[in-house]
C-alpha cells in the first residue's frame, strides 16, 4: 500500500516538475514585453467596446494611445473629455478640451408628415428595405423605420417611436459612439455638437431632390429654398444640391432661421418654448 502511494506521488510529482520546467523555458522564450501603461489606460476606459473610437475595442484603443505617445486624433465618445483628462495624466500629457457630441436624426418624415404610399413586407431591416425600394413614403433619402440604428446602439440610447415610426435618441444616454451612423444605410444620423445647455438647431432632412419632388413625398422636407441662408448672419448655413445644412461650429443658436423655413424642416431642441408657443398659436388661429 505504502509503495503504491509512494510511486504515485513520485510519478505525478515528477511529471508536474518536468512540465513546470518546460513551461518556464517556453515562457521565457516567448515572453511578450508590454508597456505597463496600456493596462493603466485600459483601466480608465469605459470597457464598452463600442468601437466609437475607430478601434476594434477598448484594449486596442489603449494600445494605440500608448504606441503613438500622444492623444492627437484619439477620442473616446462614451468616456468624454473627463476621461481623456485621466488618460492624459497617465500618459503625462495635456488633454485638449473637446465639445461633447450627440447623435441627431436628420429626418422628420413621420407617418403623418410623409404618409406611406406602399406597404413593405419582408426582412425587417433597413439594409434590406434600402436595397429593395425607395421607402414607403417614396422619399429615397428618408428614414425607412425598420430600426437598424436602434439595434446597433449598445447604450440603450435609442428607441423607435411607434406614432411617428422614427428613431428617437435619448440625450442622457447617447455617448456619440457613432454606431448608429454606420448602421443607417442612408446616413440620416449625424454626430453633432451637443450645444450649450443641450440646445441644438439642425436641418432635419437630407433630401437632395428638387423642392417639388421632395415635397411630394414629405411635407417637412427641405426644399432648398435658401430662405434660411439669407436669414443667417454667421454664414453657418450652406445650401447645396437643394439641401440646407447648418454647420454646428459656426451656428450661434440665434434661432432666426427656424421661423423662416416654409416647411418646418429646421428643428430646434431644448430651447425655452416661448417662440414655439407663439407659432402654435398662429397655427391654431389659422386653422
Amino acid at each position: 500500500m505504502n509503495e503504491v502511494v509512494l510511486y504515485s506521488v513520485l510519478s505525478i510529482g515528477g511529471l508536474g516538475t518536468l512540465a513546470a520546467i518546460i513551461l518556464y523555458f517556453v515562457a521565457q522564450r516567448f515572453k511578450v514585453i508590454e508597456d505597463p501603461r496600456i493596462d493603466l489606460v485600459e483601466e480608465k476606459l469605459p470597457a464598452a467596446n463600442c468601437g466609437g473610437c475607430g478601434y476594434a475595442g477598448c484594449r486596442n484603443f489603449a494600445e494605440g494611445i500608448v504606441k503613438s505617445g500622444s492623444l492627437d486624433g484619439f477620442s473616446c465618445p462614451p468616456g468624454g473629455s473627463d476621461m481623456m483628462k485621466d488618460i492624459a495624466e497617465v500618459m503625462g500629457l495635456e488633454a485638449e478640451e473637446k465639445d461633447p457630441m450627440i447623435a441627431v436624426v436628420r429626418c422628420s418624415g413621420s407617418k403623418q408628415e410623409a404618409p406611406p404610399k406602399t406597404r413593405f413586407q419582408g426582412l425587417n431591416t433597413c439594409a434590406f428595405a434600402h436595397s429593395l425600394y425607395a421607402g414607403q413614403s417614396g422619399c429615397p433619402y428618408g428614414c425607412l423605420g425598420e430600426g437598424d440604428c436602434v439595434v446597433s446602439c449598445s447604450f440603450d440610447a435609442m428607441y423607435m417611436d411607434e406614432n411617428t415610426n422614427l428613431p428617437v435618441i435619448i440625450d442622457d444616454k447617447c455617448v456619440a459612439c457613432g454606431a448608429c451612423v454606420k448602421a443607417c444605410p442612408r446616413s440620416i444620423i449625424e454626430i453633432r455638437k451637443k450645444g450649450k445647455k443641450d440646445r441644438r438647431i439642425f436641418v432635419s432632412c437630407i433630401n437632395k431632390e428638387k423642392g417639388g419632388i421632395a415635397k411630394k413625398s414629405c411635407k417637412v422636407a427641405c426644399i432648398g429654398c435658401s430662405k434660411c441662408l439669407k436669414e443667417c448672419k454667421f454664414e453657418a448655413i450652406v445650401v447645396e444640391n437643394n439641401l440646407a445644412y447648418i454647420d454646428f461650429d459656426k451656428c450661434t443658436l440665434c434661432r432666426k432661421c427656424v421661423p423662416v423655413c416654409p416647411t418646418n424642416a429646421i428643428q430646434e431642441v431644448n430651447f425655452p418654448p416661448k417662440k414655439n408657443r407663439k407659432k402654435e398659436e398662429e397655427k391654431s388661429t389659422e386653422n
Partner: peptide, 9 residues
C-alpha cells in the same frame, strides 16, 4: 384599394 405591397421576390 389598399396600399400596394412592396416585397422582395
Amino acid at each position: 384599394m389598399s396600399l400596394l405591397t412592396v416585397s422582395g421576390s
